[in-house]
Each structure stands twice: as structure tokens, then as C-alpha cells.
């Protein structure tokens, strides 16, 4: 079975820019994808450190692909694409 790895950033910027809501998202994603998804809350993905990148927080990393403006819809779409790719 194909499995996707999701890392969710828990850094200060991501938390302030809506990351607090990520726990709800993580719960929803676990229900939706069950064993096809491995989720890790990481301390920081260091994605926001460049000039204006804070505005795209919260960030997530899906199988090595950095995703900004992370929310249930954007993340679900990318996971589904990755799962259906083979």
C-alpha cells in the first residue's frame, strides 16, 4: 500500500498564522486517509524565514514538497494526487 508522509510545522510563525487550527486538520486527515498517511508535527520547517514568506504560513511538507497556506482542502488535494500517481 502506498503511503504519504506529511510533516506539519509547529513553529511560532505557523502557529500564529493559523497553525493552531492544524490540530483539527490533522485529526480530520487521519480519519480520511487512515493507514495511507503518516503524520508528524515538526518543531519548524524553516519555510517562513525568507522576507515575505510568513504570509503563506502555515506550512506543511508532503513527501518532500513544501506547501504554503496549508489547510484541510489544500493538503487533501495534494495527498490524493500523490496517492493516485501510481
Amino acid at each position: 500500500m502506498k503511503k504519504v508522509k506529511l510533516q506539519v510545522c509547529n513553529g511560532t510563525t505557523c502557529f500564529v498564522m493559523g497553525g493552531a487550527d492544524m490540530q483539527n486538520m490533522v485529526d480530520q486527515l487521519m480519519v480520511k486517509f487512515k493507514d495511507c498517511l503518516e503524520i508528524e508535527r515538526v518543531r519548524c520547517l524553516n519555510a517562513c524565514s525568507l522576507s515575505d514568506n510568513f504570509a503563506k504560513a502555515p506550512y506543511a511538507n508532503i513527501d518532500g514538497q513544501l506547501v504554503g497556506n496549508a489547510n484541510f482542502q489544500t493538503i487533501t488535494k495534494i495527498i490524493e494526487e500523490k496517492l493516485s500517481n501510481d
Partner: peptide, 16 residues
């Protein structure tokens, strides 16, 4: 709290 959060982001303070 939102305003405090904005200051932390702008000053690049990683609180943890």
C-alpha cells in the same frame, strides 16, 4: 495575543 504573535513573527522570535 494576535498582536503579540505578530510582533514575534516580525522580529523572528522562535518562541520554543
Amino acid at each position: 495575543f494576535e498582536e503579540l504573535g505578530a510582533i514575534l513573527i516580525a522580529l523572528g522570535i522562535q518562541i520554543d
